[in-house]
Write a protein that binds this DNA or RNA. Sequence first.
DNA 1: GTACAATATGCAAACGTTTGCATAAAATGT
DNA 2: ACATTTTATGCAAACGTTTGCATATTGTAC
Lengths: 331, 331
Amino acid sequence: MAVSIKDIARRAGVSASTVSRALKNHPGIGAATTERIQTLAREMGYVPSGVARALVSSQSSTIGVAVNDFLNPFYVDLISNIENAVTEEKYHVFVSSFHRSRERELSLTNVFFESRLAGLIVVGSLLNRDYLAWPNRTAMPIVLVSCPTYPYSVSVNHRLGVSKAMEHLVELGHRRIAFVTQGHRTTTEQQRLAGYRAVLSRHNVPADDSLIVDGDGDITGGIRAVPQLLALPNRPTAIFCYNDMTAIGVINGLQQQGYHVPRDFSVVGFDDLKLASAYAPALTTVRQPTERVGQEAIQVLRNLIQGQTSTATRIFEPELIVRHSTAPAAH
Amino acid sequence: MAVSIKDIARRAGVSASTVSRALKNHPGIGAATTERIQTLAREMGYVPSGVARALVSSQSSTIGVAVNDFLNPFYVDLISNIENAVTEEKYHVFVSSFHRSRERELSLTNVFFESRLAGLIVVGSLLNRDYLAWPNRTAMPIVLVSCPTYPYSVSVNHRLGVSKAMEHLVELGHRRIAFVTQGHRTTTEQQRLAGYRAVLSRHNVPADDSLIVDGDGDITGGIRAVPQLLALPNRPTAIFCYNDMTAIGVINGLQQQGYHVPRDFSVVGFDDLKLASAYAPALTTVRQPTERVGQEAIQVLRNLIQGQTSTATRIFEPELIVRHSTAPAAH
DNA sequence: GTACAATATGCAAACGTTTGCATAAAATGT
DNA sequence: ACATTTTATGCAAACGTTTGCATATTGTAC
């Protein structure tokens, strides 16, 4: 049993309310008493029950972060930035993952709500706009990262990011450009595919869906995509990858087959993980401004918690980082 | 305001206790009433207050995980395995990070305790045995990962792991072997250094501390270590790295200087991240059994929560994985 | 010495649950 | 028709806080 205010009260020979007030330096309590109670509390190892406090005040100082998956370094990077963005505030952050499952995402949301947290940030949601139908949104506001159609969200313009990368490849002379997906048609993936298709059609490259092959958003998926691409009657000369981990897998797969990147194939990633510049070859990729996204997500959520009702959908622009995994198309 | 049991009671025309019992299918409640109340609760979007429940029952179904740092993929891998180990149980996991700060580790522990969580797992603790003096250990049991001197802990035998790697290098003919650290003398790092020194002295290689250079446990630190090593009057022929990310940094740094791994230098990592086999060259490294560590940590914690008092320090053996970043020493 | 203000402390209700005990209603047995 | 068991429900206390209000004590002014 943890030591409670009552225990201190008994030992100090005062009432529980006096202890409560003394501990928060309430003016009405005598200086001597306050002092005595505070040292006593310290001696007894008193830690206030956030549970009881939350019950009576019906507000919490912790924010939940529900993340799709801990294995995607981009998500982890984002979590880290969200945590950093909150250190100056009075809040704490509790993170949990829903393991790429819609069902578990919903149940995790309810678990967070059971703890009556102040608010929730969802990174990589599969539920997306379904949150609009979630009955307790007013009691625990929810901000989505990367779901621009949800009215409280912070996103990156994926379509634009992909466009930049694709234009870069086209400029280099590539026409047959493959796309290795993450294997789930999330909002994000749909936007990236849209960007991919838009650039191709803008340059009058006929659509060829055999160039779109499914990965899994991780190294393994990239590796597995390679034989499929090499088996194509009309091989691509460049490969756009859903993210950096996929790109690393693809490059590794190509190297295993004796190909050289970028001489034989140009490869582009997405995210600009720290790893991207340390891989050999250093990755040409699209940088996501995770720090600003994290800060903005906290900001929007804070406003919501404080009762603001106006919608807020922030969208940031990603940036193309050209390194050494892309080169002019051979002729 | 969230809907409470009382709201349901009012609407159903019964007492709060009846609602409480009906919702958990208590036998004493009539089938019709139970049915009616349950549908009503569903309609009203009722989610029980874990806060109130925790207050009255003084037990929680969530476990806290305090992690040193989200940016170390090994920790994240471990978190993921801890989460997986818990899915079958009735518990949930809330993760938070203390950003490599002792001070924040202590305050995070208190934050978790304020929420009166069932127990806590600390990954990469800086406090280590100081937890023995933490006053609320009985109310919220704590399990450390990687601190074998704490009586409730699950660890990997780092000394043995390093020994295996070093013996491998010695067998390949290397005598001048560098060590790139993570830059903080944690328990883990001390053990690894001990393993490093033990193997060298076993083979009568004179100690040379200029071969021990500080990294930061990440790619950057590895890259920065390279010029220091190359500047040495008597260069190493092999480099043991604190972890895989450091090894990737080191290899990248060497490649930037025009060196080839493993022809010019052998490099060994630690962790066996998924990335290790997809890097070029594929990393020779020491595999940590993260899955078993995660499972065991949960198991030890569960026993503690259920009142078991006997100490439990589990230690697992790491495994050497030989790939292509190591080769015989040139003569 | 009385009146009044200021200071210090305690009482009790409330937050949303759970649960032991009491009670009311219905069903069963005779 | 009455006693007894069974079934269904309600009452009230408790968990650890916070906080408005009441009360007791002390000090000040005249």
